[in-house]
Computed example of a mutant assay.
Amino acid sequence: MELPVFYAKDITPGAGSYTMDEPTSKYCIQVLRKVKGDAVLLADGKGTRYEAIVTDDHRKKCVVGITGQTTVPAPVPAVRMAIAFTKNASRMEWFLEKAVEIGVQGIIPLITLRTEKEKFKAERLENILVSAMLQSKQWYLPVLSGPLPLETLMGRDEKGQRFIAHCLPDQKQHLLDAVQPGKDTLMLIGPEGDFAPQEIELALQYGFVPVTLGDTRLRTETAGVVACTLIAAANR
């Protein structure tokens, strides 16, 4: 039987014990019915896997004793998605959950000329990322940056391969054919209504390769998941 994994954001490396916060304690003790002596795992979201034993099964402040820790290698290559958030929050929350499960290491909310939503509840979205990380048995929490204007992103010294998916009838490669396996990747996904022509031109000037995700027009969040999946398939 697999051991349950709990997020320990503030655990101190090398600590002998750890006290879970109240929501995590309730889930551990009341939902999973863990008691003193039961083994569990902790993840700090930074690549460390902690083996632990429940020493105090208090439902509001469960304490575990750390019995060992292992450093898990970081995922290679690194894949990041810069995506314009939609007005419908639930659609972007769905995207974040699926992107984490597929293995994306970074998400950048992109502000474009047609972006519908430039603000979001960071704490709620981080909770979604944590839940998806634990559910998919990963040990690194993807980095969710603050909203970033497209022009600012263009000015960064980014390494690796860079792609922009857009709907204009230009000649484009399919993403699966364009991706070079093993290289860090930054993928741009536009808002509903697509990137504006001048934004596409700007991205091309900065070396982004234009790609298509297929023959059908996709919603923003669907395009994001498809892009994540194709990049993961190329790096299999």
Rank of each mutant, 00 (worst) to 15 (best):
L41G: 11
V63W: 00
H58L: 07
I29Q: 02
K34S: 13
G45Y: 04
V54W: 00
L42E: 04
V40P: 10
K61Y: 12
D44C: 01
E51Q: 15
V64D: 08
K60G: 07
D57I: 08
T48F: 02
G45L: 05
D38F: 00
G37K: 01
K46L: 06
D44L: 03
A52Q: 10
H58G: 13
G65T: 13
R33D: 05
K36F: 07
V35Y: 01
G37T: 06
G47H: 02
L32A: 08
L32S: 08
E51A: 14
Q30I: 00
T67D: 05
L32I: 08
I29A: 02
K61W: 07
K34E: 11
V63D: 04
D38S: 10
Y50F: 15
L42R: 09
L32P: 06
R59I: 03
A43T: 12
V35S: 14
V64F: 06
Y50W: 15
Y50K: 06
D38N: 14
K60A: 08
V54M: 02
A43H: 02
Q30N: 14
A52H: 08
K61M: 07
L32R: 07
T55D: 06
I53H: 09
A39M: 09
R59A: 09
I29T: 02
K36M: 13
V54N: 12
K46H: 06
T48C: 11
R33P: 03
K46Y: 00
K34L: 15
G65N: 10
I53A: 11
L32K: 06
D44P: 01
A39P: 03
G45P: 01
G45M: 01
V31I: 09
V63A: 09
C62E: 07
R59D: 13
G45I: 02
V64C: 13
D44V: 01
V31M: 02
G45F: 01
L32C: 07
L42D: 04
R49D: 14
G65P: 06
L32D: 10
I29C: 12
K60H: 08
I66V: 12
V35A: 14
K46Q: 11
D44I: 02
K46S: 08
V40D: 04
V54F: 00
V31C: 10
T67L: 03
I53R: 11
A52P: 07
G47I: 06
E51N: 14
I66F: 09
T55Y: 03
A39V: 08
I53S: 14
R49V: 11
G65Q: 13
V31Y: 00
L42G: 03
G45R: 01
R33G: 01
I53P: 09
L32F: 00
I53F: 01
Y50D: 03
V63S: 01
K36A: 15
V63G: 03
K46V: 00
V64G: 11
R59G: 00
G37N: 07
V35C: 07
R49G: 12
I29P: 03
C62D: 11
G47A: 02
T55P: 03
L32T: 09
D57K: 10
R59Y: 07
C62F: 00
D56H: 11
L41M: 12
H58E: 10
V31N: 10
K46F: 01
